[in-house]
Every structure is written in C-alpha cells, then in structure tokens.
C-alpha cells in the first residue's frame, strides 16, 4: 500500500475544530461567573481546562474506546467474499451495540442539558463528516445506518460514540483515538479562550503544548482506575469536576453569550 502524504489522523488534527465556533465546554459561563480570570500566566484558565479534561477523560473516553471496539470485534471485513446479506447483518449488529453505548452515555449526560446538547450536535457533525469526506472508508456502511438512526431520533448520537466509530473507520489505532479525542477537547476550549480574549493566540498555542502532558497523564490514570462499586454497568465512567459541570449547566442563563455551550 502506498503511503499517502497526508495520513487520516493528520487530517483529523488539521480539520477545523469540531464545533469550535459554538462550543466552549462551559468556559464562557465560568468566565462570566467569575471562576476563570484573565491572568498573565493563564493559570486560572489552565485550572479550568485541567478540570474539564479530567472529567471528560473519565466520563467520555470509556465510550470512545467501547465504540471503537464495537466496530472491531465483529470483524466486519473478516471474509470479503461472503454474501452481501451477511455483511448487512453484521452492520446491524454493530449499530445495535452502538445504540446501547449511546443510551448509556445519554444517561450519563442526562443531568447536564447543555453538555448533552453540545455532545449530540458535535456527534452528528462528525458522522456527516465521515460519510461525505471518506465515502470509501471501511466501516462507512455502519456509519450510514447509525446516522439514519440518529436522524430518526432512535438514538442520541453523542460525540464520544461517533468519534470512536469514525476513528476506527479512518484506521486510527485505539490508543491514538482516545489521545486525539482529548487533545481535540483541550484545543476546542483553548480556541474558545482565544475568542473570549482570555489569552492571546500565541499563548494559546503555548498552553496547548503544556497541556499535552496532562492529556497523557490523565489517560494513563483513567486506564488504571480503581474498580468502584460496580464497574460492570456504566463502563467505569465517572464525572469528576462538579464545579465545571454546574458552571456549564448555567450557560443558558448568561445574559449575553457567544457560544452554544
């Protein structure tokens, strides 16, 4: 196979931030409520991003992984010469698994309507991106069926699930997928921070580089998380930043706002 000059992972990275123009992950509310201040070193912003990253790593990454694996386990491409109906059955099977994940994640975001709304919007955008941008990707039929289910409101279509599936379709490894997922989350918040004039664009880039280390360590922690009361249900997903969560929930109560979340 000839190596293309631009890998699909690079493409995901270079792509404009998903929902970057509308989502601030609660940052705008945190600023207006006085919890994040503009400091010369950006420490107040870093605290917020670190907290948000920690919670997102613990709540969403388990679903990104599970969705990525759902596409892998069934061996969609196992025997290419099998009957087309068999392929359809397998696709249906994968989509059902994704719907179960989606419903679970929907329950987890049920207590924060702002986060829930943002996650669904960005998830749908991600599916469309794959179908339009990579019509020949290996699991694009799964994505199409799943997309139909989302459109018919039979499933929520949350970003972690969509991201996991799309990354698998693009041939990005499981490890890189969760890494990329969190990196993009951090980048989206920093991008919002620049728009909110909390930091300048150069400082934003600098912070992104610094926070890259946090992404790595939080992922490592999340993988080795102690078993709780019952890890069977909920895939060991937790919310870990209560203040950030409440602030994000307040987003619609802002008198004036630039972002949707």
């Amino acid at each position: 196979m000839p190596e293309t000059s631009l890998s699909k992972e690079d493409w995901l990275l270079w792509m404009e931030v998903i929902g970057g123009f509308v989502a601030s992950a609660g940052l705008e509310a945190a600023v207006q409520a006085g919890h994040v201040r503009s400091t010369p070193d950006g420490s107040s912003l870093v605290s917020f991003v670190t907290a948000s990253l920690h919670s997102y790593a613990h709540s969403a990454v388990p679903y990104v992984r599970a969705a990525w694996q759902a596409l892998d386990e069934t061996g969609l491409d196992a025997d290419t010469d099998s009957l087309p109906t068999k392929r359809t059955d397998r696709v249906k099977n994968v989509v059902q698994k994704l719907q179960v994940l989606d419903e679970e994640y929907d329950g987890l975001t049920g207590s924060n309507h702002v986060a829930r709304r943002a996650s669904r919007t960005q998830g749908a955008a991600f599916l469309t991106l794959l179908v339009r941008g990579f019509p020949a990707a290996h699991g694009v039929d799964v994505v199409s069926v799943f997309k139909t289910e989302v459109r018919a409101s039979r499933t929520a279509g949350h970003l972690p699930i969509c991201f996991g599936v799309v990354s698998n379709c693009l041939g990005i490894s499981l490890e890189r997928t969760s890494h990329l997922f969190l990196f993009l989350h951090v980048r989206a918040i920093l991008s919002a921070a620049i728009r909110l004039n909390l930091v300048g664009p150069y400082q934003g880039q600098q912070l992104l580089l610094t926070l890259q280390k946090s992404v790595e360590s939080v992922l490592k922690k999340q993988c080795e998380i102690k078993s709780g009361v019952d890890e069977e249900i909920g895939r060991g997903a937790w919310q870990t930043a209560p203040v950030v969560d409440i602030l994000q929930g307040l987003h619609d109560r802002l008198y004036s706002r630039m972002f949707n979340s």
Partner: peptide, 29 residues
C-alpha cells in the same frame, strides 16, 4: 430567573465576585 451578567468592559468580561452558591438545573430527558 437566574441571570449571570458579566460586568466589566472589553471582550473579556469578568464578574465582580464568586457567588457563595451556584446551581444549575436540567430537565430529565
């Protein structure tokens, strides 16, 4: 009825002080 208004001027609005209680409410899906 909860309303968060940012005081201050310029693009970066900052409210004066942190409230002693913050709360948010979401309807159950």
């Amino acid at each position: 009825k909860v309303l968060i208004t940012a005081s201050g001027s310029g693009g970066c609005a900052v409210s004066s002080s942190i409230q002693s209680l913050i709360w948010s409410a979401s309807p159950l899906p």
